[in-house]
Amino acid sequence: MIRITGIRGCAKASFRKSLQVPLLRKFSTTNTKFTEASTTHFGSKTVLKEDKEKLVGNVFSSVASKYDVMNDVMSLGIHRLWKDHFINKLDAGKRPNSTEPLHFIDVAGGSGDIAFGLLDHAEKQFHDVESTMDIVDINPDMLKEGEKRALEQGKYYNDPRVRFLVQNGEKLDAIESNTKDIYTVSFGIRNFTNIQAGLNTAYRVLKPGGIFYCLEFSKIENPLIDFTYQQWSKVLPVMGSIVANDYDSYKYLVESIQRFPNQETFKSMIEQAGFKSCGYESLTFGVCAIHWGVKV
């Protein structure tokens, strides 16, 4: 009798427990969604969402001073061509017979290469010395690197047109809605904890008629070239440890590239944020791609 009550009591207790914490996997994927919501990927590891920001911060703090060397090593110098093409394709700037100056925002652009490139292009092509630029990065070390570069080149440092802001690209708290004409992000969006939130924020800060322009690593379609590229990726962390004495950061960078969605999936994510007339152009067989979308 006592035994039976004991079993019943135990059964009741476990039943209650199962109601509170659903331990068993159901056929539907609700539980998986639940776990996915609190964690995210950091390279090949799964980490808590609140930790990813710090971890990515550590990576970029450690590579900030050797950022250029790192990019040159990783892409064999081709990243300069990609960035040049990105700036020329965007072809932005206030035209001589236009009335309004443009307001740029370059997110995750701490090193300033895209931001300065865009301003130089506007000045050289259209004599535009009015448009403004907000250079935004979550990492103060990377921003300092950009400020240092501005100081060294004697341009855009202490310039009222250019602001350096430490901001989380997913929120952009300091940027008001509907204020920007051109939103650029180059090799930065894959480090966002929540890429979709970043895209939604891009949509928020842009004016109607504003354009979202993104340069990011992507997927190679040709299997043979992809195979070669994968072999190259395996060597990169080793190269990183030789050049910058930092194996782990480079390993993270390679893994984050592999985890980033392919061209079509990323395009559909941009569309999901509300952008129209979205498209992309693959560069160097799809090693990276330029994506764009227009806020209507």
Partner: peptide, 29 residues
């Protein structure tokens, strides 16, 4: 040419950004 495109943008109260928007799919507005 670009000048007539800018004039059209001015008519409709749009900024030079529209030239970037137009040039995105085919590399030239």
């Amino acid at each position: 040419n670009e000048r007539s495109l800018i004039n059209s943008c001015n008519d409709l109260g749009q900024s030079s950004t529209m030239l970037s928007v137009l040039s995105a799919p085919s590399n030239s507005a």
